[in-house]
């Protein structure tokens, strides 16, 4: 008889654990376990195709990768892609946000139209940009020809321009939404009071607009930088990393190492270096954002 309430309370304690068990198990088996497995694998020389048992090589994979000029070139390439894309997206998003901050007829419809690129699947974005950039039929090539007076094969002559353009096309609206949200959070009476205080437009921006939108801008930049850094599908479908390795960003290199050259161990090591870079970037941003 006396044990009855005891059993009851024990069940009450166990019950929540039972409830969250499936979710935890899923995370452990699908995320954490493969991650650790991959970390282990990055210390081996291993080729999935040959099926031979992996040979332990220690930090050899890392050593080789970090000393390879090729890999450094990919880093620089990826960095350039991220830098150009995110900066242009920021500027464009900033301009668009200020445009849409004003009220005008058809504003809602215009915002919907401008943000549709966000909804398009990356593979589709890559494929139809391939048509747009097509040297013979592509509308962009046609425009480029009108502007420069000579036929331009953008994908082969300016591949970096093409992938940055595509990323900007898809992700500028994302920046715009964040900055617009920031602009709309500015208290109206602050703007009016700055008008009464006779501040110049520049001072208005500096003392009212910027302090309000800054945290949102930081967040948008963080998201975009991380995301641009690991862009894969759009670039892969547009250029496949080419011509040559002209647009082979890190993610594509990892893919190629793993699934074209089947150097599985090396690919995992590269993936981990990649992960560390993203973690570092995130940390820097978060620290900057928190300091404000």
């Amino acid at each position: 008889m006396t044990s009855q309430p005891d059993t009851g309370s024990r069940i009450l304690k166990i019950f929540p654990i039972i409830l969250i068990f499936p979710a935890v198990a899923l995370v452990v088996f699908l995320v954490i376990f493969p991650l650790i497995w991959a970390l282990g694998l990055s210390f081996y020389s291993y080729n999935v195709l040959r099926g031979e048992p992996p040979i332990f090589v220690g930090v050899e994979n890392y050593y080789r990768l970090l000393n390879s000029l090729d890999v450094w070139r990919r880093f620089v390439l990826t960095g350039q892609f991220v830098f150009y894309s995110v900066s242009i997206e920021f500027l464009l998003g900033f301009g668009l946000a200020h445009l849409f901050y004003n009220q005008f007829r058809g504003r809602r419809l215009a915002i919907t139209l401008v943000t549709t690129p966000l909804l398009v699947a990356p593979v589709a974005v890559g494929i139809f940009h391939r048509y747009l950039f097509d040297a013979t039929f592509g509308i962009y090539s046609y425009i480029a020809q009108l502007l420069t007076g000579q036929s331009v094969r953008i994908l082969s002559q300016h591949p970096m321009f093409a992938i940055v353009f595509m990323d900007v096309w898809q992700w500028s609206p994302f920046m715009m939404l964040f900055i617009l949200a920031g602009l709309e959070a500015i208290p109206k009476h602050m703007l009016e009071s700055s008008e009464i205080d006779r501040l110049s437009p520049l001072a208005k921006f500096r003392y009212i607009v910027w302090p309000t939108i800054k945290p949102l801008v930081a967040l948008a930049l963080l998201f975009r930088t991380m995301d641009a850094f690991r862009t894969f599908d759009t670039i892969f479908t547009l250029t496949g990393g080419g011509p040559g390795t002209a647009t082979e960003v890190l993610s594509i290199q990892i893919y190629r190492t793993a699934f074209q050259f089947f150097r599985t161990g090396e690919a995992t090591a590269l993936a981990f270096i990649f992960l560390v870079i993203i973690l570092l970037l995130t940390n820097i941003y978060l620290r900057l954002a928190r300091r404000e």
Partner: peptide, 15 residues
């Protein structure tokens, strides 16, 4: 050239 005080304080937070 008006000076005006609103119902809510309008102070520039960064200054």
């Amino acid at each position: 050239n008006i000076a005006m005080v609103f119902q809510f304080p309008s102070i520039y937070p960064s200054l």
